[in-house]
Design a protein around this nucleic acid. Structure first.
Length: 407
DNA sequence: TGGGTTCTCACGGCCACAGCCCGGA
DNA sequence: TGTCCGGGCTGTGGCCGTGAGAACC
């Protein structure tokens, strides 16, 4: 480390905020991200110990350093001495966690500075959400129905996932490149503050212990799907196209197909693209509690890579590293898929599901990519008259902040 | 079956202004 | 060659007007 905090310029920076593209010390992190509800939603993670400029994705347990994707790959490439180093993924968080909470989140960090609770951040840890992608010290409270838990569970039910984990443990490039855990399915997955905290059992993720899918809650998934949209910018356009290509109806038709084995389901899937096959992964019965049927992770992964191909040059490595999509695509069920035995639609619920989907799609702006978050933030709070911006200090009929009128 | 009316939806323009971009000093 | 300055341009969200298409009579 050694980089100074971008905010105060005084303290050593420790965390990286992708939304702000800033390295911050913990104190400034709390100050900056307790300012308002929007800033509290920024997901942060540790700073890479090696380059001190990128968000860390994994923790090398041997070298005891946090590494970003590039440094990880560079340092643990096949053939290198460190290729076999055991690594753990590093959690993201949002909200305003205290130093104690961060200590629990990052147990491997011994020198977390003490940070006083932020009075503006009334909920503390309850406000905080942890993006669990591999490591946490929290016990896995059974029944905590978190999306990420489900995502992890989905992975852990797949033998391929074991391969994946092993590949993470071993070489990060070269011969193992095909099995290389993409940023999308390997690393920290930010979660909106509204998403429940994620309990975690390290053994579960790292060693593919059995996991069950009880308490799968569609509401959680809905939340996550919103997050996915919110966080993903461009790449979700692919997702829309994905649905558009196959058509949402085709998806529901697929879901209504006789609940046979996976092969039968494959037969009724639209087979026009790999992207659609990602859908097939999403419709996999894994989340129904059938641990005997697993998502073909390699298939899903290849689909993921297609999805990510939509990232433009403007997308930073961090965009890849956010990879909420992994949570969504790998979690076994589409976000609007209702819970219930066999995942079937009771009479009439198909229409409601379709309606919900359409409403969500309507709310979304798939074709819009925010290029300048600062401008968006300003526009979000700018006063208007009949939708038009007004000069500062002039009469307005709409204030996004308080929805009051000046006259 | 064709014409008229109504409704829904999509799209673009408008507004202010911070910050980006780029040319010139 | 690098830095600074200033002017022009860009992009942001909500509302409204307009046109296209669907639905109905």
């Amino acid at each position: 480390m050694g980089a100074q905090c971008d905010f105060c310029g005084d303290q050593r920076s420790m965390v990286y905020c992708r939304s702000d593209a800033a390295s911050l010390c913990l104190s400034c992190d709390r100050n900056v991200h307790s300012a308002n509800a929007l800033s509290r939603r920024h997901t942060r993670t540790l700073l890479c110990d090696r380059c001190t400029s990128q968000p860390a994705m994994v923790r090398c347990l041997v070298e005891n350093v946090s590494l970003c994707q590039n440094c990880d790959w560079n340092g643990h490439s096949a053939g290198s001495e460190a290729a076999g180093h055991k690594r753990q993924t590093i959690n993201c968080y949002s909200g305003c966690p205290s130093s104690a909470e961060l200590s629990r989140l990052w147990s491997f960090i011994s020198d977390i500075p003490n940070v006083a609770p932020e009075p503006n951040c009334e909920q503390g840890i309850s406000m905080m959400s942890i993006s669990d992608s591999g490591v946490s010290n929290q016990d896995n409270a059974a029944g905590d129905n978190s999306l990420l838990d489900i995502a992890s569970a989905t992975l852990t039910n797949d033998l391929d996932t074991c391969d994946r984990v092993q590949s993470l443990e071993g070489s990060s490039s070269g011969a193992g490149v095909n099995l290389l855990p993409t940023a999308s399915d390997q690393i920290a997955r930010p979660v909106d503050s509204t998403t429940p905290k994620v309990p975690y059992t390290p053994e579960k993720d790292m060693f593919c212990k059995d996991t069950i899918y009880e308490d799968f809650c569609v509401d959680d998934v809905d939340l996550a799907f919103e997050n996915y949209e919110e966080l993903f910018g461009t790449s979700h356009i692919q997702t829309e196209q994905l649905f558009d290509d196959a058509g949402i109806d085709s998806y529901f038709e697929m879901k209504e197909a006789p609940a046979g084995n996976a092969d039968e389901q494959k037969l009724v899937q639209p087979a026009n693209s790999n992207a659609v096959s990602a859908d097939s992964g999403m419709s996999n019965p894994v989340a129904k509690g059938d641990s005997s049927v697993c998502i073909p992770v390699r298939q899903a992964r290849s689909s993921l890579s297609l999805s990510f191909s939509g990232l433009t040059g403007e997308s930073s490595a961090g965009d890849h590293q956010d990879c909420v999509v992994s949570s969504v695509l790998l979690m076994g069920e589409p976000p609007w898929h209702p819970p219930g035995p066999e995942g079937s639609y009771p009479g009439g619920s198909r229409d409601s599901a379709l309606t919900r989907y359409k409403e969500k799609k309507k709310r979304r702006k798939f074709d819009k990519k925010i290029r300048y978050a600062s401008r968006k933030a300003r526009a979000d709070v700018r006063k208007r008259v009949k939708g038009r911006f007004v000069k500062a200090g002039e009469a307005y009929d709409y204030d996004p902040l308080c929805e009051t009128r000046s006259y």
